[in-house]
Simulated assay, not measured.
Amino acid sequence: MSNRIQGTTGLIGLIGNPLKHSRSPHMHNSAFEKLGLDYVYLCFEVPEEGLAKAIEALKTFNAKGSNITFPHKQKVLNYLDEISEDAKIIGSVNTIKIDSESKKITGYNTDGRGFIASLDELDIPFRNQKVVLAGVGGAGRAIAIQLAYEGVGELCIKELNKSLATEIKETINKYIPNIKVKIVKDDEASLKEELKDSSLLINATPLGMKGREDKCIISSAETLNSNVFVYDIVYDPRETLLMKYAKQAGCKTINGINMMIWQGAIAFKIWFGVDMPQEYVRQELFEK
């Protein structure tokens, strides 16, 4: 990237901890350069107790907004002036926009919308279908609720934290009561049984990501059948252990690259009102 930062350059941030693995700066700064926008996107590793000060700092530095990631997606709700309706129901925010004049902050969640956009882009069936979702913490929470909004036939949740799974189920039952939600037992035999008539399996857990490459939500390809489309939202490594098992079982697979780019593109549109050049960004990040 050329050296284009100057005295007029505006700021977009990413607040979370840890962040050294994040591809978001590369994604957004590539888009800024392509479109000639005088902005820079920077990471700010902030511990949980430092969130309030970090939000105030963004205001002080006239930042246009920020992405919010682990572990702050829920706690940030305490520092917002307004919140979008879907983010309110999801109960977490991953994108904020700061009004340049009033400094009022509006919160959004682009995780679920980005995930759905990636499904629609590739014509992956899920509406009126049975879907199994592993993990409803973090992005999985938004994915679960967005799937319900978009008309999934039945949502089966596999989550070790049963109180969290129950909370998500109750939230969906309250706001989208026509959607059937089931909590899957922890044993793999129960998961295998649910997958027999499911069209889509989603991994929204950290299992399989860089540093946990040997971890997986299943123990072998035998848990799967070839009719299930396997979507692992992990994007580093490009092929997870789950995806390898899925290919052995004859399943179609996809990693989290499309979701990452789509959720970033939706945030980009919130901040600037223009579309992110997604194909250019994809080439910059993954195809060079």
Rank of each mutant, 00 (worst) to 15 (best):
E150P: 01
G151Y: 04
G151N: 04
V152N: 05
G153I: 02
E154K: 11
C156H: 09
I157K: 10
K158F: 05
K158D: 07
K158I: 00
E159T: 13
N161K: 15
K162A: 09
K162G: 03
L164Q: 15
L164P: 00
A165K: 02
T166G: 06
T166K: 10
I168Y: 09
I168W: 08
K169E: 07
K169I: 10
E170P: 00
E170L: 15
I172A: 02
K174S: 04
Y175M: 02
P177R: 03
P177E: 07
I179D: 00
K182V: 13
I183Q: 10
V184P: 02
D186G: 07
E188R: 01
A189K: 15
A189L: 14
S190P: 08
L191Y: 01
K192M: 11
K192E: 13
K192Y: 06
K192R: 15
E193H: 09
E194V: 02
E194T: 11
E194Q: 14
K196P: 10
K196Y: 00
K196I: 12
L200V: 00
L201K: 04
N203C: 01
N203M: 02
A204H: 10
A204D: 08
A204N: 03
T205Q: 09
P206V: 01
M209S: 05
M209K: 04
M209V: 13
M209L: 14
K210G: 05
R212E: 09
R212A: 01
E213F: 05
E213K: 14
E213R: 14
D214G: 10
K215M: 15
